[in-house]
Structures are given as C-alpha cells and as structure tokens.
Simulated assay, not measured.
Amino acid sequence: MKTIITCFSVLFSVNFIECSFRCDYKYSVVAKGWFKHFVVPATWYDARLRCALEGAVLLSPITQELEDEMSQILKNFFTSESEIFTGIHATFSDGNYFSIEGIPLSDIPLPWAEHEPDNMEDDERCLIFNGNGDLADRMCEETRPYICYRNGSKEVETNECGTVDNEYRLDTRTKSCYKFHTVPRTFARAHFACSAEGGHLVIINSETEAQVLREIFAKYQSGTMPGLFWKNVAFIGFQDWGERGDWRTIHGETLSEAGYAKFSPGEPANATPGEFCGSIYRTALLNDLWCDKPAPFICEKRPDHPAVCHPLADEENTIDLRSNDISKLRLDCTV
C-alpha cells in the first residue's frame, strides 16, 4: 500500500506539487526541501535525535536558500529576540564546529552576534541562529526551538507502513506496523523514539497481537543483539503512571480495557525498587521492568500515520519566482 497525498500551493502559475516525505513537514520550492519547526524548546541533543528519527537532520544555514528559509520561519512563528538551535556543533572536539552534514563552520559564511562566540564557562559547543541572521554559541544542554530538514534530493519509496523506514513491517492480522529496536533505551527514550518515528510503544490489544509480538521477538535472538543488557525482555506501552500497581497503557486504558492483561507468573513483582514500566518476555507475557535501565523495545504505528507524500520532479512544475515573499512558496501537504 502506498499513500499518495498532494501538496497544494497558492501561486499565480503553480497549481500543485507532490511531496516525497512526511506531510507534517512543509515543502519549500526555493530551498528544495522539507521543513518542520518545533516551538517546544529542546536540548540540542534531543533536537538532533528527533530530527534523525523522523528521517531528517537538524537544520543548519549551510546555503543561502536554507538561511532564507530559517529567517522566514523565525519571522513567521517566533519573536525577533528568538534563537533556534542549528545543527552546527563542536560536540566531538572543542572548537571544531561542523554541521550535522559534516560541513565545517569555515564554509558557512555567517556573521557572529555581538560579543560572540564567547564559550561562556568553557561549555558552549552548539550554535544558535537568531532573528538577525547571526550565530552565537550556547550550551548544548540548554533548550531552544529548532527546525528539522530533509533534502529534497532524498527521494525514497515509502513502504506499506507509510514510512521510508523499512524496519517497519505490516502484519495483516492486526493491520498495524511494528519495529523491533535492538539498540536499548530507557523507557522514556524508547517512548521518544517511537513517537518521533510516527508511532508509539506497542500496546497489546488481543491474544492475536501477543502472538504477533512473540513471532517478532523470536527473530531477534540474544546473540544477534550486541551489548551488555537483558535481551529477553522488551519495553512496550504500559506503566503505572506513578500510582504503584495501577497498570495502564500509555493511552490511559487499563490493561483489561486495552484487551490484554496476561502477566508472566509471579509478575508484576517489583523485585527491586523501580520496576514501574511495562515490558514483555519472549513469551509475550507481561512483566514490570526498571524504567531507567535500557532495554530493547517495540514500536507500533498505523500505516496511514503520519501521511507520506510522493514527489514529481521539480522541473515539471512552473513556479512564479518573481514574488519576494518566499513564504508563498512553502507548500502545505493536505489529504
């Protein structure tokens, strides 16, 4: 199944263009790419990770077109004093700044803001872009809004799960898509990853779905997962929400309401303090697990969410570029 959704533009000589990426992104004809801005501030590390999990990168002003797009987004959605994180960083070695794509700062000719860079307290290794088009260094652990970007040249066919991520597989028994993550994360980071990928930690709604997960888990034997962590459990989408013993899914239902409440014998045990998050054994029987200890996890997503659009070649579209307002060239994806 391939989801085809068109993206419309209100221009004098353009009627429509099709996109080849998630339709929660906006397509810019001038910048030839897809953009999504986040107003909720995040650390640089979380911003980079979310963009990567969505199939994009944390945006940097590495071309004039991208700089113009960043300036326009700042103008449209933020205040003149706002700062947004860029993908330019020196997290690998002090003072050596590169964009996420590996472009050195010396090849990005942008001015510094007044009194910048100052590397305050010898701890500022991530760069922001402000409403004046200037750069400044900031602590990566501080929080700022940010923009994710996908280059328009990356035209990847979407699969039956409506994503460019081919690790998702559709199961016809449940009509849901699943992905087993072998790189362990804490429960919070697992939830983060599934959400960014357009899904959620899997919620078991039936014995049939439990069987699906047994089969998925069986494909990932312990020897195939490198690293020192417990490989016979995987986080799924339930926890006690801070009320000990009140197990509910991440969508707020009791396990019985969701359709599956079969714990492994002797579980939940809270054998050592902190087992407040949900997991399954390879049997697909439920288990309580430490929230802060990394484990494999399973994501679930609907095939139609988020919507993914397919492109036509840019040269097949006639664009009136005489307007100076590039915001008119940003295309909204609609069903």
Rank of each mutant, 00 (worst) to 15 (best):
K2D: 13
K2A: 12
I5D: 11
F8Q: 14
F8G: 05
S13M: 09
I17S: 15
C23N: 10
C23P: 05
Y25W: 03
V30W: 10
K32H: 13
K32D: 05
F35G: 07
H37P: 10
V39Y: 01
V40A: 12
T43S: 15
Y45K: 13
D46V: 04
R50A: 11
C51S: 03
I62H: 09
E65R: 10
E65G: 01
S71R: 14
K75P: 04
F78D: 09
T79S: 15
E81V: 08
I84K: 10
F85C: 04
I88C: 00
A90N: 04
A90L: 02
S93V: 14
D94T: 12
G95H: 06
N96A: 14
Y97P: 01
E101F: 06
S106R: 14
D107E: 15
D107S: 15
P109D: 06
A113M: 12
E114H: 11
H115G: 02
D118V: 09
D118P: 01
D118L: 05
R125L: 10
R125D: 15
C126S: 15
N132S: 14
D134W: 07
D134F: 09
R138M: 04
M139I: 08
R150A: 04
R150F: 00
S153C: 00
S153L: 11
E155V: 14
E155T: 12
T158F: 10
T163W: 00
N166T: 13
R173W: 03
T174L: 00
K175V: 02
Y178W: 00
P184L: 02
R185P: 02
F187T: 09
A190N: 04
F192Q: 04
F192K: 00
A193I: 06
C194Y: 01
S195W: 09
A196S: 15
L201T: 09
N205K: 11
E207H: 11
T208I: 14
Q211T: 11
Q211Y: 08
V212H: 08
Y220G: 00
Q221S: 12
G223C: 09
F229E: 06
F229S: 06
W230K: 14
N232S: 13
G245E: 08
G245Q: 11
T249V: 05
G252K: 00
E257R: 08
G259H: 07
A261T: 07
A261V: 06
F263L: 05
P265Q: 05
P268H: 07
N270S: 12
P273M: 09
G274L: 03
G278N: 05
G278C: 07
I280H: 03
L285M: 07
K293M: 08
P296H: 05
E300V: 01
C309F: 01
P311Q: 09
P311A: 06
L312H: 13
E316I: 04
I319Y: 05
S323H: 01
K328G: 02
L329I: 04
L329F: 06
C333Y: 07
V335R: 14
